[in-house]
């Protein structure tokens, strides 16, 4: 707290200096701000405006349609070419199940790594870190071919199934996420566990009734990050899913784009807007958790 305030004072000093300089710098900074804002906002604004433009194929060139209407949205959900509603449901289903699985696995693993001492514990965590440095995208050829082979014997996790996708997303949670949860539990006093154990609770009861309830912030962070990642994933879903009814909304949108780009441009933009909404809805109230998660470890000192 002290530190924040003092750095704020430092900023004030810097600002006084800057302000005292001249008007030009102030105008210059606003000009830069305007250019950057235009750069940042234009795509979002443009996609919304195009989705409201009833003219089917041609962009009007203007930033706002003359006769806005929802006809593109209506068509999006009632067209004969693409099962957009199914795609959206698939994405929400896959992301939700992956999130539930990830939260379960990381919480249990984090608790065990934080509270129990066993042989190989440190080596295990180092192994996690090492495996984690290779982006999962590098495995795409191997994952595709193995899932194809696996599917010959266990059809629920073969190609074109949601099962395989969910397992891969959940498996990805055994990376940095586990260490984040472990680090969080490390900050919870061990005395809490010990008093519960003295009262005769089993380790499981201690975790379930004492520790898990106070893990809310980290559970939300992990949950939100997993949901956003699973919902937004493109590559693995693109590689593993084939039939139109199985696709996620991200893969579907690209298919949309490549197949019917000329005919139904308005519909594509409407699809993009709708597909972005779940993430924005999650992001706005929980932004703090996303930022905590993504910057974990960056500003420790």
């Amino acid at each position: 707290m002290q530190k924040t305030r003092s750095s704020a004072m430092w900023y004030d000093d810097l600002l006084k200096q800057l302000r005292s300089h001249d008007w030009l710098s102030l105008i210059g900074r606003y000009a830069v701000a305007l250019v950057l804002i235009a750069f940042a906002v234009a795509p979002a604004l443009w996609v919304v405006s195009s989705s409201l433009n009833p003219a089917k194929s041609l962009g009007s060139g203007s930033l706002w349609p003359k006769h806005p209407s929802l006809v593109n949205y209506d068509e999006l959900f009632n067209n004969d070419f693409f099962p957009y509603t199914t795609w959206l449901k698939n994405s929400l289903k896959i992301a939700s199940i992956s999130t539930a699985g990830t939260v379960t696995i990381t919480c249990l693993a984090g608790y065990a790594l934080s509270r129990f001492r066993f042989k190989g514990r440190r080596q295990f965590m180092i192994a996690i870190l090492i495996l984690n440095v290779f982006p999962s995208i590098l495995g795409m050829v191997a994952i595709y071919t193995s899932i194809q082979q696996l599917g010959l014997y266990i059809s629920a996790v073969g190609l074109d199934t949601h099962g395989s996708l969910i397992l891969i997303y959940v498996a990805g949670s055994m990376g940095i996420n586990v260490l984040m949860v472990k680090a969080y539990i490390d900050t919870i006093p061990v005395e809490l566990d010990e008093s519960a154990l003295v009262d005769g609770a089993s380790p499981w009861q201690t975790f379930r009734h004492i520790i898990f309830p106070i893990m809310r912030p980290i559970v939300i962070t992990i949950g939100v990050l997993t949901f956003i990642a699973a919902y937004g994933d493109f590559v693995i879903a693109r590689v593993l899913l084939k039939s139109s009814n199985q696709l996620t909304v991200m893969v579907g949108l690209l298919l949309f784009q490549t197949d019917r780009f000329d005919q139904d441009f308005g519909m594509i933009t409407a699809g993009a807007v709708i597909a972005a909404i779940p993430i924005i809805l999650i992001y706005i109230p929980l932004q703090r958790y996303v930022i905590d998660g993504l910057t974990a470890g960056s500003v420790k000192g």
Binding site: P43, A44, F234, L254, Q257, I268, I280
Partner: peptide
């Protein structure tokens, strides 16, 4: 910060069309 919460695939598609 507006670009941040938009899913990457959607952002790129928008740029491509824009």
């Amino acid at each position: 910060i507006i670009p941040w919460p938009i899913p990457v695939l959607i952002s790129i598609l928008i740029w491509r069309n824009m």
